[in-house]
Design a protein around this nucleic acid. Structure first.
Lengths: 123, 123
DNA sequence: ACAAGGAGGCACATTTTTGAAACTAGGGAA
DNA sequence: TTCCCTAGTTTCAAAAATGTGCCTCCTTGT
């Protein structure tokens, strides 16, 4: 099977784990929030409501590990703080992610309605 | 916070669950495979290598529930079969998904390398 | 008679993800 | 002195996702 210049399976077997990584519950939100400007730990935490410290840390570590996010410690400041920002690679991901967000934003009402109707039809 | 004409959190709190739905291990693959043309159950199963019957069924039911995929039974045929196809809504998702796939396809080598280097630096 | 293909269903087990709560450690303020 | 802020870590528990194996039902082919 071919999609554009990709084949499924083949390329998509490698792509799939990356999409899972990127498409998890928090990663997208963190990337989009960092797409504006560098931010500090607790600042991100406040903007991504309901994220636990643990999940924020895990998410950021994963993004750092993959080279999508940079972590910088300002030890000389007072209080010393940590700043997270997108790398160049991270920035290239923003556009396709925004496209998906826009789709979701446009269609979530429709999807919720479809799901409700499907429930109702189940009897 | 604002991104284009969206706000985070706010819109993105609704968007997040949708991205999670779409971003699971199999959904993207199934959607892309159906983006070409309608296909039958076992046909999809062969193209998405390693998917279990159970997960294919679960994935398809979820997509059907959300109105992204249509299920049609051809009972009069011999053997009777079931055909799955993207709905109109489903088709609108293909473009943003392909954009993401393209990004992943372009960058997965870099990401894997970053991850390996991060491992190595951990000592 | 028996296998094979088509389209699943069901129950259970395992794996992965996520959450909640407590704890650390250093400095500043009341 | 005790509380708060910074930025986390650690442990345990709960929930969700995924896989495995076995069963069904129908029909056609050998």
């Amino acid at each position: 099977m071919k999609l554009g210049n990709m084949s499924v399976p083949g390329d998509c077997e490698r792509i799939s784990p990356i999409l899972s990584r990127v498409g998890d519950k928090w990663t997208v939100l963190v990337i989009l929030i960092l797409s504006e400007e560098p931010k500090r730990y607790n600042q991100i935490r406040r903007e991504v409501e309901n994220i636990s410290q643990r999940m924020l840390t895990v998410t950021l570590r994963g993004l750092e590990r993959d080279g999508l996010v940079m972590r910088r410690v300002f030890a000389e400041k007072n209080p010393p703080w940590v700043e997270y920002s997108l790398t160049e690679l991270g920035h290239t991901l923003v556009e396709p992610l925004l496209a998906l967000c826009k789709w979701a934003s446009t269609n979530y009402l429709l999807i919720e309605e479809n799901a409700r109707n499907a429930e109702a039809t189940c009897n």
